[in-house]
Amino acid sequence: MTSNPTHVGVIGGGRMGAGVAQVFAGLGASVTLAESADRDAARARIDEGLARAHERDKLGGADPALIGDRIVVVDAVEALPGGLDLVVEAVPEDAACKLAVLSAAEKMVDDTTVLASNTSSLSIGELGAALNDPSRFIGMHFFNPVPASALVEIVRAPATAAGTVESVRDWVAALGKSAVVVNDAPGFATSRLGVCLGLEAIRMLAEGVASAADIDRAMELGYRHPMGPLRSTDLVGLDVRLAIADHLADTLGDRFAAPELLRDKVARGELGRKTGRGFYDWEDDRR
């Protein structure tokens, strides 16, 4: 394996998958993105992401069209080609869905291909147990928005080979991002801490302690957080944060029980920036 992967597969063309495809294509890799629901929407997300990066001068002078040309969008995991160095699964945070696409991908790729999940909370060990060779399976938890984020959380399960960890470390470094390596545990390091803070901020809002803006400003200015917990929840998606909270409550106990305010907002479809409203109004900034 080389420090720079030359051909990468991505499964799932949502915001995260499109972002993962963009950064590897920006590195110079050929990328095959499998999206079964809406290939046109996946391609539009990639094009929009590249256009934004170009506007902000984040492509190092590269032509966004040339980067986009390195990405081929196909309609099924079964269309992934041979010769892939890495496949990153970025489908919704549902264990059954992830198991299905990972199992299908393993049948399609070479026996040297690293398989990775972008899960933010599900057990890498449990997902890997369904594979024939869990030694090449690992967690690569990217953050939203992928092109602008500086971190990738690498999650190592007991069966993950040391060589797999080292290859993924090299690839993360090649992307210009920093890696933290954590052992497989509920919520890993980032989701566990991030959800804990976010849930308490939601409880404080529900109790009338302060406004959403003031709670966020307190953490941004008082603790130097780049973004407050409620705005961050809007960016992640309230539905995503609720799913992670429910998983952590099941595995770690009631301290991760989701507040009713969060459940109510999700039930009303107020999911954050992607729907135009969460704890803030995003109608002028929907992407």
Rank of each mutant, 00 (worst) to 15 (best):
P5N: 12
R15N: 14
M16F: 01
A18T: 01
V20Y: 03
G26I: 02
L27I: 05
T32E: 09
L33H: 05
A37S: 15
D40T: 13
L59T: 09
L59R: 12
D63I: 07
D63L: 13
A65L: 15
L66Y: 11
G68V: 07
R70H: 11
V72G: 10
V73C: 12
V77W: 04
E78T: 12
L84A: 05
D85W: 12
L86Q: 02
L86W: 04
A90L: 04
D94L: 14
K98Y: 05
L99K: 12
A100H: 11
L102M: 14
K107I: 02
D111T: 08
T112A: 15
N118M: 00
S121N: 07
G125L: 05
L127N: 03
L127P: 00
G128V: 03
A129E: 07
L131K: 07
D133I: 03
D133L: 08
D133H: 10
R136L: 12
M140A: 13
P147Q: 14
A150T: 06
A150Q: 11
L151D: 08
V152W: 03
E153G: 04
P158T: 08
V165A: 09
R169G: 03
D170T: 08
G176I: 03
K177A: 08
V180C: 05
G187T: 01
T190M: 11
T190F: 08
S191E: 04
C196Y: 12
A206W: 07
A210F: 03
S211A: 02
I215R: 07
M219C: 04
E220Y: 05
L221V: 09
H225T: 05
M227W: 06
M227N: 06
G228Y: 00
L235C: 06
V236S: 13
L238Y: 07
D246F: 00
A249I: 01
L252Y: 10
L252A: 09
G253Q: 10
L262K: 11
D264P: 02
K265T: 02
R268W: 02
L271G: 04
K274Y: 06
E283F: 07
